[in-house]
Measured scan of single mutants.
Amino acid sequence: MKVIFLKDVKGKGKKGEIKNVADGYANNFLFKQGLAIEATPANLKALE
Protein backbone atom coordinates (compact mmCIF):
# COMPACT_ATOMS: atom_id res chain seq x y z
CA MET A 1 0.00 0.00 0.00
CA LYS A 2 1.31 3.46 -0.86
CA VAL A 3 1.35 5.89 2.04
CA ILE A 4 2.36 9.51 2.60
CA PHE A 5 4.39 9.94 5.77
CA LEU A 6 3.18 12.77 8.01
CA LYS A 7 6.09 12.39 10.46
CA ASP A 8 9.55 10.82 10.36
CA VAL A 9 9.45 7.08 11.10
CA LYS A 10 12.86 5.60 11.93
CA GLY A 11 13.90 3.07 9.32
CA LYS A 12 10.77 3.51 7.20
CA GLY A 13 10.45 7.03 5.84
CA LYS A 14 10.62 10.76 6.39
CA LYS A 15 7.91 13.40 6.53
CA GLY A 16 6.47 14.06 3.07
CA GLU A 17 7.82 10.86 1.50
CA ILE A 18 5.57 8.54 -0.49
CA LYS A 19 6.48 4.87 -0.05
CA ASN A 20 5.08 1.37 -0.37
CA VAL A 21 4.62 -0.42 2.96
CA ALA A 22 2.85 -3.62 3.99
CA ASP A 23 -0.94 -3.26 4.30
CA GLY A 24 -0.97 -4.56 7.87
CA TYR A 25 1.82 -2.21 8.96
CA ALA A 26 -0.01 0.76 7.45
CA ASN A 27 -3.42 -0.12 8.89
CA ASN A 28 -2.32 -1.36 12.31
CA PHE A 29 0.46 1.09 13.09
CA LEU A 30 1.01 4.05 10.79
CA PHE A 31 -2.63 5.13 10.42
CA LYS A 32 -3.57 4.50 14.07
CA GLN A 33 -0.55 6.47 15.33
CA GLY A 34 -1.22 9.33 12.89
CA LEU A 35 2.18 8.83 11.25
CA ALA A 36 0.92 8.43 7.68
CA ILE A 37 -2.13 8.61 5.41
CA GLU A 38 -3.03 6.52 2.38
CA ALA A 39 -1.65 7.92 -0.88
CA THR A 40 -4.99 8.37 -2.64
CA PRO A 41 -5.25 10.73 -5.64
CA ALA A 42 -7.03 13.30 -3.44
CA ASN A 43 -4.35 13.11 -0.73
CA LEU A 44 -1.58 13.37 -3.32
CA LYS A 45 -3.19 16.47 -4.81
CA ALA A 46 -3.54 18.05 -1.35
CA LEU A 47 0.16 17.38 -0.71
CA GLU A 48 1.22 19.49 -3.73
Rank of each mutant, 00 (worst) to 15 (best):
M1Q: 07
M1L: 13
M1W: 03
M1D: 02
M1V: 14
M1I: 15
K2S: 10
K2R: 13
K2C: 15
K2E: 09
K2N: 11
K2H: 09
K2A: 11
V3A: 02
V3C: 03
V3L: 02
V3N: 00
V3D: 00
V3P: 02
V3I: 08
V3R: 00
V3Q: 00
V3Y: 00
V3F: 00
I4L: 08
I4A: 02
I4P: 01
I4H: 01
I4S: 01
I4F: 05
I4G: 01
I4N: 03
I4T: 01
F5Y: 09
F5Q: 01
F5P: 00
F5C: 02
F5E: 03
F5D: 01
L6M: 08
L6H: 01
L6S: 02
L6W: 00
L6E: 01
L6I: 12
L6G: 00
L6K: 01
L6A: 01
L6N: 00
K7Y: 10
K7F: 12
K7M: 12
K7W: 09
K7E: 12
K7N: 08
K7Q: 14
D8H: 07
D8A: 05
D8N: 09
D8Y: 07
D8M: 01
D8V: 02
D8F: 06
D8G: 05
D8I: 00
D8E: 07
D8P: 04
D8R: 05
V9W: 02
V9S: 02
V9C: 05
V9Y: 04
V9H: 03
V9F: 04
V9M: 04
V9G: 01
K10N: 11
K10T: 11
K10L: 14
K10C: 14
K10M: 13
K10A: 13
K10G: 08
K10I: 12
K10Y: 13
K10P: 15
G11C: 10
G11W: 06
G11M: 06
G11R: 05
G11T: 05
G11E: 05
G11K: 07
G11I: 02
G11L: 04
K12G: 13
K12S: 13
K12H: 15
K12W: 15
K12Q: 15
K12N: 10
K12A: 15
K12C: 15
K12T: 13
K12L: 15
K12I: 15
K12D: 08
K12V: 15
G13P: 01
G13C: 07
G13F: 13
G13A: 12
G13I: 04
G13V: 06
G13K: 00
G13E: 04
G13Q: 02
K14H: 10
K14I: 08
K14P: 01
K14N: 10
K14W: 08
K14M: 12
K14Y: 11
K14F: 11
K14E: 07
K14L: 12
K14R: 13
K15D: 01
K15S: 08
K15I: 09
K15W: 04
K15N: 05
K15T: 09
K15V: 10
K15P: 05
K15G: 03
K15E: 07
K15H: 05
K15L: 07
G16V: 00
G16N: 07
G16I: 01
G16D: 03
G16H: 08
G16Y: 07
G16E: 02
G16R: 03
G16W: 09
G16F: 08
E17Q: 11
E17V: 04
E17P: 00
E17C: 08
E17D: 12
E17K: 03
E17A: 04
E17W: 04
I18F: 03
I18E: 03
I18T: 06
I18V: 13
I18N: 00
I18G: 00
I18D: 00
I18L: 06
K19G: 08
K19P: 00
K19V: 13
K19D: 03
K19C: 09
K19T: 08
K19F: 06
K19N: 04
K19R: 10
N20Y: 15
N20C: 15
N20H: 14
N20R: 12
N20D: 13
N20F: 15
N20V: 15
N20M: 15
N20Q: 13
N20I: 15
V21L: 06
V21R: 00
V21G: 00
V21Q: 02
V21P: 00
V21I: 09
V21M: 09
V21S: 02
V21A: 04
V21H: 02
V21N: 01
V21Y: 05
V21E: 02
V21D: 02
A22F: 09
A22K: 12
A22L: 10
A22W: 10
A22Y: 09
A22V: 08
A22D: 15
A22C: 12
D23S: 15
D23F: 15
D23G: 12
D23Y: 14
D23I: 15
D23N: 14
D23H: 15
D23E: 15
D23Q: 14
D23C: 14
G24T: 14
G24H: 14
G24Y: 14
G24Q: 12
G24V: 13
G24S: 15
G24W: 15
G24E: 15
G24M: 11
G24D: 15
Y25M: 06
Y25D: 07
Y25G: 04
Y25W: 09
Y25S: 04
A26L: 07
A26T: 04
A26I: 05
A26P: 02
A26W: 07
A26N: 05
A26D: 08
A26C: 08
A26H: 03
A26M: 05
N27L: 15
N27D: 10
N27I: 15
N27G: 07
N27K: 15
N27V: 15
N27P: 07
N27H: 14
N27A: 12
N27T: 13
N28F: 08
N28T: 07
N28V: 06
N28H: 10
N28A: 09
N28E: 15
N28Q: 10
N28R: 10
N28M: 09
N28S: 10
N28I: 06
F29R: 06
F29V: 13
F29D: 10
F29W: 11
F29E: 10
F29L: 09
F29Q: 07
F29G: 05
F29N: 08
F29K: 07
F29P: 06
L30Q: 01
L30M: 02
L30S: 00
L30P: 04
L30N: 00
L30Y: 04
L30K: 00
L30H: 01
L30W: 06
L30C: 04
F31N: 07
F31G: 05
F31C: 07
F31Y: 06
F31H: 04
F31K: 07
F31S: 05
F31T: 08
F31V: 10
F31L: 13
F31P: 06
K32M: 12
K32Y: 07
K32H: 09
K32I: 13
K32G: 08
K32A: 14
K32T: 13
K32P: 15
K32L: 14
K32C: 13
Q33M: 14
Q33D: 09
Q33Y: 15
Q33V: 09
Q33R: 11
Q33W: 15
Q33G: 07
G34D: 06
G34W: 05
G34E: 07
G34I: 02
G34R: 06
G34A: 07
G34H: 09
G34F: 06
L35S: 03
L35E: 03
L35D: 02
L35M: 06
L35Q: 03
L35H: 04
L35P: 00
A36F: 02
A36I: 07
A36M: 02
A36W: 02
A36Q: 00
A36G: 05
A36C: 04
A36D: 01
A36K: 00
I37M: 11
I37F: 03
I37A: 06
I37H: 04
I37C: 08
I37P: 00
E38Q: 10
E38K: 11
E38L: 10
E38F: 04
E38S: 07
E38P: 14
E38N: 04
E38I: 11
E38R: 10
E38H: 08
E38W: 04
A39I: 04
A39F: 12
A39Q: 01
A39M: 07
A39Y: 11
A39R: 00
A39N: 02
T40I: 05
T40W: 02
T40K: 03
T40N: 08
T40Y: 03
T40H: 05
T40L: 05
T40D: 06
T40S: 10
T40P: 03
T40E: 03
P41T: 11
P41E: 14
P41K: 09
P41F: 09
P41N: 09
P41Q: 11
P41V: 12
P41I: 13
P41R: 08
A42N: 10
A42W: 03
A42R: 09
A42K: 11
A42L: 07
A42I: 09
A42F: 05
A42M: 07
A42T: 10
A42V: 09
A42G: 10
A42P: 08
N43I: 08
N43H: 07
N43C: 07
N43P: 01
N43W: 05
N43F: 08
N43Y: 06
N43G: 05
L44H: 04
L44Q: 07
L44W: 03
L44F: 04
L44T: 06
L44A: 07
L44I: 14
L44S: 03
L44N: 04
L44D: 03
L44K: 06
L44G: 05
K45W: 07
K45A: 13
K45R: 13
K45P: 06
K45T: 10
K45S: 11
K45V: 09
K45M: 13
K45Y: 08
A46Y: 12
A46R: 12
A46S: 11
A46L: 14
A46H: 11
A46V: 10
A46G: 11
A46T: 10
A46E: 12
A46Q: 12
A46I: 13
A46M: 13
L47V: 10
L47I: 11
L47A: 09
L47C: 08
L47Y: 14
L47S: 07
L47R: 07
L47Q: 09
E48P: 08
E48K: 11
E48Y: 12
E48I: 13
E48F: 12
E48Q: 13
E48C: 14
E48W: 09
E48G: 12
E48S: 11
E48D: 11
